[in-house]
Amino acid sequence: MSSATSFYDFKPLNKRGTEVPLSDYKGKVVLVVNTASKCGFTPQYKGLEELYKKFKETHGDDFVVLGFPCNQFGSQEPGSDEEISTFCELNFGVTFPLFQKIDVNGETAAPVYTWLKTQKPGVMGLKRIKWNFEKFLIGRDGKVKGRWASTTTPASLEKYVLDELESKAEVEQKE
């Protein structure tokens, strides 16, 4: 989808295979993460859930984490969408939305990831995801506000998320 101008232009499939218009998240702050269940970074699911719950308590539905399972890195996400979902719920209490397993790099990369990488290239301008649990922060305006490597913990993103959540007044004044 080369004509995409914002995050809201995409409609990925959820874990049940149903199209989800990302426009459903318009006006919200969104943290997008490519995930895997058998990775050294898998415990970040816990931190992502804690971040999700923390801001849900303080800001209601204004913040959401979206997980996109991916098996492109060391085959660390081999299960079905149902198996992945069950694993996340049982082991980490995940309640944030998980989508259907996707590719994030190459010719078969999900369009939303192709767009994210173009909007916010990585180190040295590289337009590829390096590993599982890379993170993108989407502002209320549908633009990419930040990108962080796998080694960045969810807790260390609190300030960035809060800054975007508090930008609500500016968005409302411009309308």
Rank of each mutant, 00 (worst) to 15 (best):
W148T: 11
E107Y: 02
T18C: 02
Y160M: 05
D141C: 06
R147E: 07
Q119W: 03
R16C: 05
K56W: 02
G47K: 10
V33D: 13
P78F: 04
R147N: 05
K101F: 04
P111K: 04
V144G: 11
K120H: 06
K53P: 10
Q173R: 14
W148M: 04
G125E: 10
S2T: 05
K135D: 11
K28E: 07
E57G: 04
P78Y: 02
N34Q: 08
L126V: 08
G67W: 12
M1G: 07
R128T: 14
K15Q: 10
S6I: 02
D61R: 10
K15N: 14
F87W: 08
D163F: 00
F55S: 00
K101W: 02
S80A: 04
F41I: 03
A110N: 13
R147S: 08
K11Q: 14
R147T: 04
G17W: 04
T42G: 11
K143G: 11
E158K: 14
I84F: 07
V30E: 12
S37L: 01
A4M: 03
G146M: 03
Y160K: 14
S150C: 14
F7M: 03
A4N: 01
P43E: 09
T151F: 00
K143R: 08
Y113P: 05
L90G: 00
T153R: 07
E175S: 11
D9P: 09
Y45Q: 01
A109R: 08
W148A: 05
F10E: 11
V32A: 06
L90M: 14
F92W: 12
E170W: 10
D103G: 03
L116D: 10
T153P: 01
C39S: 15
V104L: 09
K145R: 14
P12K: 07
G93N: 14
K168S: 05
N91I: 00
N71D: 12
Y52D: 09
V104T: 03
T152I: 11
L162M: 08
T5F: 02
A149W: 03
Q100V: 00
Y45S: 06
K159T: 15
K54P: 08
Y8D: 04
W131N: 13
F68N: 02
S2Y: 06
G60L: 01
E170A: 13
P97L: 11
V94H: 02
Y8N: 01
K15H: 12
D62P: 01
T114W: 00
E89C: 01
T86L: 09
N14E: 03
H59M: 00
K168G: 00
K54Y: 09
I129V: 15
G40H: 03
E175F: 10
G139V: 05
Y113V: 00
G27W: 06
E107L: 09
L165E: 14
S23A: 15
F7D: 09
K159C: 02
P154A: 02
K117I: 02
S80T: 15
Y25W: 11
